[in-house]
Design a protein around this nucleic acid. Structure first.
Lengths: 200, 200, 200, 200
DNA sequence: CATGAATGAGCGTTCATTCAT
DNA sequence: TATGAATGAACGCTCATTCAT
């Protein structure tokens, strides 16, 4: 109770856990390592989160929060149709570059979720939250006069697939020349799919 | 060696290992589990592959072989420009649907490689092989009169990003309506990027 | 202390603890489980009973109280010699059937006491109390004209051995045909050992 | 392989485990303690017996073997009716006195089995084996001219209840005067129940 | 009385790996 | 090749207990 607004201990641990996951990878990140990373006794993890699954669920939740926090704050101010269309995906991507470790952890969760049912639900939740925000943006775009050539779900699917695919490339090989160009191409394609009415 | 065409024991084990990885996930797949899955004593794994890392490297190699085998055989016969442009990505995707478990394992390796140096090299190798084949296809397309609006590396980047992103979606949520549409859209975009000269 | 007849909190906890012991068995009944069962924070157990040993001692005491309460109340009214001889063991047994869980806990304590000195004293105390009541009953029998062919301690020994042995059978296998017959045989034997003078 | 007839390692460990159980009691006997007692690394227990349950099952099996071994060898030579009737229970009891620790472990298993299903089956098995041997003895008694006033199952029930009850007394309080007398009384009762035809 | 936090010790179990035969 | 046995290290988790408020 040293400062007035102190983030809660569980939250601090979760962020440390995410960092540990980024450090060692999902497969090699034991509770001991997370505890060490958070400078907490290993049993406190059980105290706060119950068991390993409870911790993982909370980690996934926190990952979702942080992934979305970066995105939502970035697109809050956008208003004009062009701006919305152009900046939407850009914001998504900037978040990847700003927090690559967070996205690496996300990728780890997504990958692990393929064979882990309890994780699957958590990962689906993150996708849903992404979806929700993207749809809100699309809605605002439409109101601002943007004509979207695709139905909502397909748009979300394409954007997230693009984001994920390019993120994998980024995490694998870093910021290459080709990636930058791929990004530009992908973005201009999205612009095509969502062009202001005036362009027609 | 009783019959002429008998796959070697190490190879059989590798395929069993891939199956085990698909079953339990990269994080939960111990050597014991792999051994059980292959119906081999676990010490045979050390006999054939040295240590865990050696086995993983070989698994990655084998995953690459199988991923590429499906792809190369599919595109071997293509000749006309339209055919090449249209069927290229389609073949890639069909392989995903035909062997989702193999692609799940691949995703697991890609994800683990982010924090594991020895895996990173292996995974990069798989990407390189993909790249090589795609470039060969592009080359054949060009010779058949296809005009590619992008440089080679960017084209590969875009195709692989799309493939990976959509594969993640497929592994996460199965064959949804949206995914089918996303695929169609993505493909038509690729057609745009690589249109026959005659279209101009 | 809102109502006049409210059992004290420690007593309530003890009964809950006995129930937990019956549920999980002596070996698998941690303080946490007892606390959960009693819907009390586990630290309250330390507050009321000191440590694990203190709790166990109190539990044994309470088990003794409840075992004996059932018995003494049942034999209070007996007066005639036949009645005393006949009903004595019957009451003991009825208590087993009425509260099998309590007797299961008792058996657990007896068994644990074999290797646990502090428990041994507690369990011996329960036996002593049984002994006392049986002897009182015998005394009353004698005054009512019953001739007991055995000295007091041997009688107690036989009765308790029979009770324990048959209880073990009951707890192991439930109310079988054989058990019912064994009970009848045992009882008629006791009748033989303690027959009214008039029978001679 | 130093001597020709060396008891197998698992068997040696089981006997050490039984000894450890007698030492610490069922509730306080961890695998570590068993391992220490057997002078084996704790993981060898898993190597030989799988998990804790597997070990316990084998222990129960071994306890049964040893309980019965003492009994069967003792009654093998009996032939005359009086001998059989007299010596039957005596042999049972001599085994208790000869191996009190073994019987203490048995009591612990019986007690734990009340709340543990997997143990219950094992304990029932031991009872069945006892039953079998007692019935064989009864059969031999009958052939030798012994008239048994009870049906088989009831006889077994009474004998085992008596044995268990008196064993509990013995384990609780040792070899007391009263116990000796109780034994004598119990035995003479059994003689009553099974008297040679000639006596009638 | 009650609660949040912590701790030393130990639980049963599994990890990858090695040795000897 | 194959097998029985072993091992250092760690796993996730629970034990009874204590401290501070």
């Amino acid at each position: 109770m040293t400062t007035a607004k102190e983030t809660s201990e569980p939250l601090r641990i979760l962020d440390a856990a995410i960092d540990a996951l980024a450090e060692y990878g999902y497969a090699n990140c034991s509770m001991q390592r997370i505890a060490d990373h958070a400078e907490v006794d290993k049993r406190m993890l059980h105290y706060y989160f119950g068991d390993r699954n409870g911790l993982t669920v909370q980690i996934a939740e926190r990952v979702g929060d942080r992934l979305l926090a970066g995105f939502t704050s970035a697109i809050e101010g956008l208003s004009g149709p062009r701006e919305i269309a152009a900046a939407g995906f850009e914001s998504l991507w900037e978040n990847v570059v700003a927090e690559p470790r967070l996205h690496a952890v996300h990728l780890g969760l997504v990958s692990a979720a393929v064979t882990d049912d309890s994780l699957r639900a958590q990962v689906a939740r993150i996708r849903d939250r992404y979806s929700e925000v993207i749809l809100q943006l699309a809605e605002r775009g439409r109101k601002a006069g943007l004509e979207l050539r695709l139905n909502d779900e397909t748009l979300v699917g394409l954007i997230l697939a693009g984001l994920n695919g390019l993120t994998v490339d980024y995490l694998q090989r870093g910021e290459t020349e080709e990636l930058t160009q791929s990004l530009a191409e992908f973005q201009s394609w999205l612009m095509q799919l969502a062009r202001p009415l005036a362009d027609a």
